[in-house]
């Protein structure tokens, strides 16, 4: 256990002392938020019924969606250490120790998790500050739930991205993969465009991505209050179709996920990738 934490500590130190990598991780968060404010916001608001408070609901909707994908888009910096270790042969210094393969994987995952949590926390603080300033309805319970949800979100993001990148042997492949993943995940999880506007096939693929489920859970916890506020007294049919189109409620081939089953799905997929990750660490 100590060995795993020592490796994690080392990775986190290497990451945070390299100021440029921290800066670019933060940039990726800030760019997505700016992208939304400058381009997507008006389009999304006008696409929905002109109810009072719709703009604030859409704000809360997009920010909670972004929270769902942040662990995926920001773990590049932390995982970069791992790929560089391998490319430079620096992993030999770890492989000669009596550390088990699972502990080595665990060390890299924990550090990625910590970075994902830190970045999610920064994004959450910025989001809550923005929503609070613009007068979006928020509840303390909802924000606290969001904080708790950040844990499984960062955990699944770091494990899955670790497993995907743990076999790469070049930094070029790594950054290429990351750019692709970061763009793709935003669309698959319905962050930039609502789920309901995507073709059915894409929706099915999107539902298989754990980040979509996390985004849905974040929408419920962080934008739930705004949703209730905007649709108070509205016909239940209308609320239901909005919830489905905007990815508050998600379903896969007729199966409707609730928060519990979504969580089970996320954790099951994460566990699967953890096994893949551990199997990936074999001595050459």
């Amino acid at each position: 256990m100590n060995d795993m934490l020592a490796l994690a500590k080392r990775n986190v130190l290497c990451y945070f002392r390299d100021r440029s990598s921290v800066f670019f991780s933060l940039m990726s968060v800030i760019i997505v938020i700016l992208l939304y404010l400058l381009f997507l916001r008006d389009m999304l608001i006008s696409a929905n019924p002109p109810i009072d408070g719709m703009d604030r609901l859409v704000d809360a909707w997009v920010l909670s969606g972004i929270l769902g994908i942040i662990p995926v888009t920001t773990c590049a910096g932390a995982l970069q250490t791992m790929v560089e270790d391998r490319v430079n042969g620096r992993d030999r210094d770890v492989l000669v120790t009596p550390m088990k393969a699972s502990a080595i994987a665990g060390g890299y995952i924990i550090s990625t998790f910590i970075v994902g949590m830190a970045m999610s926390a920064i994004a959450l603080v910025l989001s809550v500050a923005y929503l609070g300033m613009t007068g979006c309805p928020l509840s303390v319970a909802g924000v606290l739930t969001t904080v708790v949800l950040m844990i499984p979100s960062a955990l699944s993001g770091s494990i899955i991205m670790y497993a995907i990148t743990s076999r790469l042997r070049s930094t070029g492949a790594f950054s290429g993969l990351f750019v692709t993943m970061s763009v793709l995940i935003g669309f698959l999880a319905g962050i930039y465009m609502p789920m309901g506007t995507m073709p059915e096939g894409m929706q099915i693929v999107g539902m298989l991505v754990p980040a979509s489920h996390m985004a849905s859970l974040f929408r419920q916890s962080l934008a739930g209050e705004a949703l209730n506020d905007v649709f108070s007294g509205a016909p239940s049919e209308m609320v239901k179709s909005f919830r489905t189109d905007m990815g508050f409620d998600i379903s896969l081939m007729g199966f409707e996920f609730d928060p519990f089953t979504s969580m089970v799905f996320v954790l099951a997929v994460t566990a699967l990738f953890f096994i893949i990750a551990v199997m990936g660490i074999r001595r050459r």
């Binding site: 020592a6 002392r17 030999r92």
Partner: peptide, 19 residues
């Protein structure tokens, strides 16, 4: 193979803990 961003002592502490 030690980490450039870490001090010598930190490098040793981290490696020692791995054992």
């Amino acid at each position: 193979l030690l980490d450039g961003m870490l001090t010598v002592r930190e490098n040793l502490e981290v490696r020692g803990a791995m054992y």
